[in-house]
Amino acid sequence: MSPSHSPLEIRPGRHLDWPTLAVAAAIYSGWIVVTARHGSIPTPLLVLSGGWLLAWHGSLQHETIHGHPTGIRLLDGAIGFVPLALWLPYRLYRSSHLAHHASPAITDPHEDPESRYVDRRFGLAWLAARLQSTLPGHLLFGPPIAIARFAAHESRRAVSAPLQVARDWLPHLLAVGLLLLWLDHVGLSITRYVLFFVYPGMALTNLRSYAEHRADLATKGRAATVERGGPLALLFLNNNLHAAHHERPGLPWYRLPSYHREHRARLIGDGAVLYGSYGEIFRRFAVNAHDAVLHPQYRDKSA
């Protein structure tokens, strides 16, 4: 990571990022139209559009966490807050993601809340990591595992810090209630919404996250780059250029490609993790694991 930029850098100034606002308008208006017209949309197209909108919304939330589109935390949070995925309060996502960027050792399961590595060769965490070690496993099993792990963590936190949990969850639950009222109004059952919107949306997001970090003790966890994102670059708001994002997390999504081109030699040099496309990731990891799930920091201790 470049020493000249804080990992929590927020874009200076308070001017509107119109491309990000346009994405937000497209997501929310698209979600309203698709949910309202779900009965007339063929199931394959409903799964595709629902999954795309939910994954795109996750990318938008990621942008708001990093200070877009206004640079005013309250306004950006209001834009990203809407709980289309139902299960994850925005406040907790924001806290976890900023902790990921601030981690002194990205990918270390004790230092990075977004790590998928483990520190031992047994237990439920080990089994969950093994189930997700290939790309199909991460797409298929990743969503329910993420929700189950999150629910277990929040259950423990509810015992140790009930007031804080209530503060984090009450606004989220109120918003979820309003969203469920809308789904009931348009006749879309919660089961169909989870299966046709939430699950495929999480799976698409997992496609992005699967190979974006690789544990490396020499570099404290190296961020990867997928150079040709194709249509998925728009879905992920250029977060496929993950090394560039980690170096300049306050840079808006539409400026990442030019930043990557300008600094490409450095970003992909010195052993950096580089993929040509998501097609390459599919080919390489359809059967083979992306990496050993036991973090290298703990491999000797667990031998």
Rank of each mutant, 00 (worst) to 15 (best):
G269N: 07
G276L: 00
D216H: 09
I10T: 11
R157I: 06
D119Q: 01
P19A: 10
A25P: 07
S189N: 09
L174Q: 06
H97Y: 06
Q132R: 15
W31R: 00
V287A: 13
D168W: 10
E111W: 15
R228L: 06
G123N: 00
Y210P: 09
R261Y: 02
P109L: 09
Q61F: 02
L274S: 05
R264S: 03
A243L: 02
G279A: 15
R94L: 10
R214M: 04
G77N: 15
H5K: 08
F141Q: 05
R214G: 00
L234P: 04
S29C: 12
N206G: 12
L84R: 10
H15L: 14
S96T: 00
L294G: 02
A102W: 03
H213D: 03
G201Y: 13
V198Y: 13
A224E: 09
D108K: 08
G50I: 14
S258N: 01
D168R: 06
S95L: 06
W31F: 12
L54W: 01
A85V: 01
P89F: 11
F197W: 15
I190V: 14
S2Q: 12
Y254A: 15
F282W: 15
L241N: 06
H100S: 09
Q297P: 00
S4R: 13
L188E: 04
F282R: 14
H62K: 06
H242Y: 08
E154R: 08
A166I: 06
I65M: 13
G276V: 00
R248M: 08
F150T: 13
L16P: 09
G142V: 11
G67Y: 01
A24R: 05
T219Y: 12
Y28W: 01
G67E: 00
H97E: 10
V198C: 11
G51M: 05
M202I: 01
A175E: 01
L45F: 14
P7S: 08
L74A: 12
L8N: 14
T43G: 00
A303Y: 04
V159L: 14
D184E: 13
A55T: 02
L60T: 02
L8G: 15
E212N: 15
R14L: 09
G229S: 07
V159P: 03
L234N: 04
P252S: 12
D270G: 12
A292M: 13
L98S: 11
L274M: 05
G177Y: 01
